Simulated assay, not measured.
Amino acid sequence: MAKLDALLFDVDGTLADTERDGHRVAFNRAFADAGLDWHWSEELYGKLLAVTGGKERIGRYLEQYNTSFEAPGDLKAFIAGLHKAKTAHFTRMLSEGRIPLRPGVRRLISEARAAGLKLAVATTTTPENVTALLENALEPGATEWFDVIAAGDVVPKKKPAPDIYLHAMERLGLAPEQCIAFEDSHNGVISSSSAGLKTIVAVNGYTRDEAFDAAVVVLDHWGEPDSPFEVMAGEVGEATFLDLALVRRLHES
């Protein structure tokens, strides 16, 4: 068994619970700025999360939920403009400290960094969102902790395709056997497992009932010493929170 050399992280829903009160709100603000009467409720946004990528979600919304909208001639540019405005709102929310990291995230990343493991991001969200989250919710300069940040449109196919993970591992110069992934969604686990990675899942409110058959363990969050996780699937022994020792055991299992 190859030793563990790198941790590969999804971002939205994994490092921070960004979707319901972050991205969704930012989308609605961007729509209002553009003079649109669109509003994505929590329920509707949950359905749109079946599609990865913000621009892709707008496209799905128009295809399935707002078919009467008279789209402009250059629909692609129109969607890109809305998404750019949404990103500006979202990064502003992050800079205001409104979206904290999930339990255990800061601790585990710091532990892995101290142990000399490589850190990487593999996400469909934009690079601007990743930077804003890491710099504001983790620590100023935290972007530099990561050897690779693979984000947004850097690959042609987004999750559930494995492309973003394959790209990240290629840049790291590592094989799947040397890495482990962290995800929160069914599409994310399809992506990581298709890239040959073992995957640890921490669900969120939108993904709790999804299927994670390919994950090595499914938790409600990573936990803290004084705030134990709930194990929803898999085996963790006597552990009550996710630390590097448990990550290594799961990698070897």
Rank of each mutant, 00 (worst) to 15 (best):
T67D: 14
L119C: 09
V155K: 10
A151Q: 11
E63C: 10
T67V: 14
M93L: 10
P103D: 04
P140T: 09
I58Y: 11
Y65I: 11
S110Q: 12
P160E: 09
P140N: 05
T125G: 14
T143Y: 06
D74L: 08
V155H: 03
G59A: 13
G59Q: 11
A142K: 00
L62W: 06
R57P: 05
F69D: 07
G81Q: 09
P140D: 05
E139L: 15
D74S: 12
G73W: 00
G104S: 00
L133C: 03
E135Y: 03
D147M: 04
T124I: 09
L134S: 08
V148H: 12
G116Q: 11
K118Y: 04
D153R: 13
A88F: 12
H83V: 06
A115R: 07
G116F: 10
K118W: 05
I58H: 08
G81I: 12
L108W: 01
L134Y: 06
W145P: 00
D163Y: 13
R60M: 13
P140R: 03
F78M: 12
T123D: 10
Q64Y: 13
K84Q: 11
T123P: 00
A151L: 14
L75H: 12
P103L: 09
A77R: 15
L108P: 01
F78C: 05
E144W: 00
T91L: 10
S68D: 15
E135K: 01
R113Q: 09
L82C: 08
A122H: 02
A71F: 13
R60K: 15
R106P: 00
N129Y: 12
A132K: 02
E70N: 14
S95W: 03
V105C: 01
T123N: 08
V155F: 04
R57F: 01
A77D: 14
E111R: 02
V155S: 04
R57W: 01
A120E: 02
